[in-house]
Simulated scan of single mutants.
Amino acid sequence: MSLKFSPPLFEVNKLSFERQGNPVIKEATFRILPGEYCAIIGPNGGGKTTLVRLLLGLEKPSSGEIKLFGTTQKRFRAWNRIGYVPQRSALVDTAFPATVREVVAMGRYAGRGILGFESAEDKAAILEAMELMGVGDLSDRLIGNLSGGQRQRVMIARALASNPDVLIVDEPNTGVDVESQHRFYELLRNLNRTKKMSILFITHDVGVIAEDITSVLFINQTVLVSQNPAEMIRCDEMSRLYGTPAHVVSHNH
């Protein structure tokens, strides 16, 4: 019986990035494997969001190589395989004239283009994403009229509409109530464990997902990788990495 080989979702080798001559990321090397739930942590200004933007091709590296699903980034075209929920995504202009369904449908653009017609497959994927996130009954509501928690679920549904292999979320809990945050963490856990979706989650509050994650990327210009999250998120280790006394709290949820 032949074994099916699955390349890393992301393979990064000696990646560096400078902004106006100042180093932001230095010589980062790591791999993210299929099925992983990876937390990306580090101090403000350490390069977390920049790293994700580099992975998504939104920034160009100063040097080094990025491969996505075994393909060099320059040759990679299957961007629909990556779902992205950016930072502060729940903060939407209340005057933005788009319905929930229209926002979720944007997640299909990578596959068919903004001017393409919706296929039956598109419509089914949009409906499935809305139902999965519990916003199907809000389909015709304007996105600007929703609560922060509802908008967050819509933005995640948009990312899921492309049926991605990996979901990247960049601290999307700004402006979201605590109850919605807990539902969000539970959703990520279920996507990873039930649907086998890989997760990359930028967070400051690693304690809330400590029991869920399988690996940690700590970034403060350089990148440290741990396949043993429980070891890395000890109080003494966090204090060493952040350069200041740290107290790690693991939340039961």
Rank of each mutant, 00 (worst) to 15 (best):
A98W: 02
S198Q: 05
Q87I: 02
P97N: 12
K195I: 09
A110Y: 05
N80V: 01
A129H: 01
S198T: 14
M197L: 15
S89Y: 07
E131Q: 08
D137R: 13
H182A: 13
P172T: 04
R81E: 15
Y84S: 00
A90V: 06
A161P: 04
K196N: 15
I168R: 00
L138W: 02
R141S: 10
V85P: 00
R158H: 05
G136D: 13
I143C: 06
T99W: 03
F201A: 07
A129R: 02
V176L: 07
A125H: 04
D205V: 08
N80W: 09
E186G: 14
R153H: 14
P97R: 11
Q181E: 15
Q150K: 08
P97M: 14
A125F: 05
R108H: 13
A90Q: 02
G83C: 08
Q152W: 09
F201H: 14
S139K: 03
E171T: 07
R153N: 08
D170E: 07
K195E: 15
F117K: 13
R193A: 13
I202W: 08
A124V: 01
G116Y: 09
I126L: 01
D137N: 11
H204C: 13
R153L: 07
F96H: 11
L187G: 03
D170C: 07
A110S: 15
P97T: 11
T99Y: 03
D205C: 10
D177H: 08
F96Y: 15
L187S: 10
L191W: 06
N80P: 09
R108F: 09
D170W: 02
V135N: 03
E179P: 01
A125M: 04
Y84A: 00
R88Y: 06
S198M: 10
L188E: 10
R151M: 12
A90R: 05
I82L: 15
L142W: 01
A129S: 04
E179D: 15
V135G: 00
